[in-house]
Design a protein around this nucleic acid. Structure first.
Lengths: 358, 358
DNA sequence: TTGAAAGCGCTACCAA
DNA sequence: TTGGTAGCGCTTTCAA
């Protein structure tokens, strides 16, 4: 008796004990295991309130929580979404990740997160992620070969690319309208009277950088501006810094630089200033993304936003759609960005330019 | 025959099909299901190479991969680590997360990531994470009540706090030596001849900010400096910006500010500059963390680093230890930071100061 | 409204 | 070296 009391007390302490199963609860509550399961199943099915109470009480005493793994096993549904992200540290992505997590948690999906190391391609990570029977896979800041994408999709797990596109009918994607964004940058720079333009690219084989450049180039061509220059960057501060300085060595240095993302634009500004070049008085700089740092007082970067919240919403809808009906034809959704005017492009400033966050 | 070939080809295409089980493979290879399991089990146990070949071939043809959920079910081991992170977007944490992922993936652990929304305390997230039978839980940038921590630990799942401490013998933690860091900041500022010091705190109930302030205050006291001022921030750029400006309204404004993290220090610098105050000529600023942005040309922030890589290594060792022997007594490990000298503190600059932005 | 029993896809033990 | 078989902890029929 005393022994039993001690035991009970001990159990009270442990809010959750991973070794307690529904059978233990059933015994203690004097009901069948099926009944315990019913009490904890989502639809709250037919269980008399008297029995439910007893089961809940027993669960509390024992520190019982249903084993999610076992539940997955019998429902053949994990409610887990895999997210595959290569560079979390690139300032645009932490926000994306946080937002995805919140939205997914809100619809009772958990997130299994994978990241690709340098020596490991995303293609290799795919089979791994798939072994966990994820309901869907969201791939972000990583390039997937179209073969791998197709193979995966045909295996029955929906794959959605975020901010990347791949030319395969079996892979959905949501991304910013990078082509339009590139055109917009060209117009902004030309309209404000710049005459020698430059572009600093991101990693060359990313669709994002390619499309931004293509839109930019196309629009410049349309408006009769042929001689612009380019440099290759790697989406990093340092590469933007170096590329901007190298641009200064042109026979006729540019008077405006369009960077494939904000972080390179910020690097570019610092690179230019380190050489005594004023921004925007001597050289204008425009970025892409509108990360928080773009609003920092030292930069006040004029840029083209990515409407992240909207993009994420659409990604999740698309995902849910494809979980429902995996064999519908795929589509790519493009979300238009907006021009965010701060003060790194001259002759463009709207009113007072202390657009400082805070 | 032709039919068969077609089928085989089709199967070759599907790199992975989630509906194929080991029984299907067994049938096709003409072996028992146990044998298939053996071929895919980690220890590569006794299977003749002839049979192994046949099984592998069949698996390839069918697009088979072992179901990780089922494996967890029978081994009663998930190899999943839960990471609980409140603010991924705070610039220090993306790097932490990426590093954790890489290290954990390297030892064949997957990561289930949870984030706490504003309306959701970490304590509420705990039972959820635990349902997934994670091998361990790493809690970062979030404050856990000691009751919840204790309850969880006693439930059998090791909990390790990263960069937070809680006064409970059942919870391990790894964090920077914030006390020593605070002292160091005091010494640096005093040694370089500053006379009116200020501190901008982070979120008040975080051990991180408390310890940094305590170390700072203690050291100032030891060196006979009593009249320093403080402001409360929220670890954000905006709060640093505002706090610094408010500090300017003191009857005797400070000539040096110690900020509880880098992002507030950067905000502070911009806030000061926006008021025409020069850094470091008029006011010196020192931060804590050494995030990448601290090295950006516009700020060149002198700061105290957190040795993240080392902290993560230790967290993982500690975790592995506790997975092995969950009932060993807990400990808190503190990792000393280093002074990183750039040019936001005067009379301290080593080498050339290319602090340009104004 | 409740209970019994058959799986979910794997691992691991025991026999052969 | 292989195959048979008993679980892992749950959900979900089907009967009572």
């Amino acid at each position: 008796m005393v022994r039993w009391r001690e035991k009970a007390n001990k159990f009270q302490l442990s809010i959750m004990n991973r070794n307690v199963t529904s059978i233990d609860v059933a015994k203690r509550a004097g009901v069948s295991q099926s009944t315990v399961s019913r009490v904890f199943s989502s639809g709250s099915p037919n269980v008399s309130s008297e029995v439910r109470e007893r089961v809940l009480q027993a669960s509390l005493e024992l520190g019982y929580r249903p084993n999610a793994i076992a539940r997955m096993m019998s429902t053949r549904q994990t409610n887990i979404v895999g997210i595959l992200m290569a560079t979390i540290t690139s300032p645009f992505y932490p926000y994306v990740l946080e937002k995805f997590l919140k939205e997914l948690q809100a619809i009772d999906r958990q997130v299994l997160l994978f990241t690709a190391s340098e020596n490991q391609s995303v293609d290799d990570l795919l089979p791994l992620a798939l072994q966990y029977q994820v309901d869907a896979l969201i791939i972000t800041s990583a390039t997937l070969s179209s073969e791998a994408a197709a193979a995966t999709s045909s295996g029955g797990t929906p794959v959605i690319l975020f901010n990347r596109v791949v030319s395969d009918a079996n892979v959905c994607s949501v991304c910013a309208d990078n082509l339009a964004g590139g055109r917009l940058a060209a117009d902004v720079l030309l309209d404000s009277g710049h005459e020698k333009l430059a572009f600093i690219a991101g990693i060359e084989n990313t669709s994002t950088s390619q499309d931004r450049e293509r839109g930019f180039a196309l629009r410049l061509h349309e408006r009769g501006m042929a001689n612009w220059v380019r440099r290759a960057g790697r989406y990093t501060y340092e590469s933007g810094y170096a590329a901007a300085q190298s641009l200064l060595d042109e026979t006729v240095p540019p008077d405006a630089i369009f960077c494939a993302n904000d972080i390179m634009a910020i690097g570019a500004i610092d690179g230019l200033r380190a050489r005594g070049v004023r921004v925007p008085d001597d050289v204008s700089v425009i970025g892409f993304d509108d990360i928080p740092m773009a609003a920092w007082g030292a930069y006040n970067l004029t840029t083209i936003s990515q409407e992240v919240d909207q993009m994420i919403q659409q990604t999740i809808s698309l995902m849910l759609e494809r979980i429902e009906s995996p064999h519908e034809p795929c589509r790519t959704e493009r979300v238009a960005g907006k021009l965010v005017i701060r003060s790194s492009v001259r002759n463009l400033t709207t009113g007072k330019s202390d657009d400082i966050a805070g």
